[in-house]
């Protein structure tokens, strides 16, 4: 697509938000970065422009304005903050793609804070009934964005959602970030994806992968 898509990244100063912003800045996107602390997102925007003067990244004070301008919204805040963010952007997120990257982990990283029959993505969809919620980027660590090819192999990144056109758009985003997009299924698959990342975190701690690890599906 030639027309530049605008992406609002809420929580752009965090580990994931900054990593996603930096890697999407390579694509044909205009990035609006927001979080609680404007100075921190401004630093991320400055860094993006410094490394890539052609990129379009701007710190924006208000997640409502950014989401109103955006075609795509990425919620990169901790799971616990998602309800508050969703309530703020509900009106302006109408019919837009909202990407859920959250893994609803407990404080000790050995379980989830969510019931077994749901997921952070499905909870976000309930909070934003008229948005097209898509699960993506939850099975990749923040460090993977700088190195999407690990040990000579490109990491896969799973995507789940109910709207075919939105899945296609998000697949393009995942490719731009350097990962191999794998559409896993409907939004209800998100629970599996979130639990897969819980496993990867536990393996990371057990075997000391240094947070540089990912999933790859081997197939014929």
């Amino acid at each position: 697509m030639k027309t530049i898509q605008t992406i609002a990244i809420i929580g752009a100063s965090g580990n994931m938000g900054a990593a996603i912003s930096k890697s999407l800045a390579k694509g044909n996107y205009r990035l609006l970065l927001c979080a609680n602390d404007l100075n921190k997102v401004q630093a991320v925007a400055d860094e993006i422009i410094k490394t890539n003067p052609a990129a379009s990244a701007e710190a924006v004070d208000c997640s409502v304005d950014a989401s109103w301008e955006a075609d795509i919204i990425i919620s990169a805040v901790p799971y616990a903050a998602e309800k508050e963010v969703a309530e703020k952007i509900r009106e302006v997120a109408n019919q837009k793609i909202v990407i859920s990257i959250a893994n609803p982990l407990n404080e000790t990283y050995d379980g989830l804070v969510i019931a077994p029959d749901t997921s952070a993505a499905e909870e976000l969809q309930k909070l934003l009934p008229n948005a097209k919620v898509i699960k993506a980027f939850n099975t990749t660590f923040a460090a993977d964005f700088a190195t999407p090819v690990i040990d000579g192999k490109q990491a896969g990144a799973f995507i789940a959602g109910n709207d075919p056109e939105a899945l296609e758009t998000v697949s393009e985003l995942v490719s731009t970030a350097g990962f191999n997009p794998i559409v896993a299924g409907k939004l209800a698959v998100s629970g599996t994806l979130e639990r897969m990342q819980l496993l990867l975190i536990q393996l990371n701690m057990k075997y000391d992968y240094n947070w540089l690890a990912g999933w790859k599906i081997l197939h014929q």
Binding site: W68, E69, E91, N94, K96, P129, N130
Partner: peptide, 8 residues
């Protein structure tokens, strides 16, 4: 309204 997209 449920199907409209607001855009700036």
């Amino acid at each position: 309204k449920a199907y409209l997209t607001p855009k700036k």
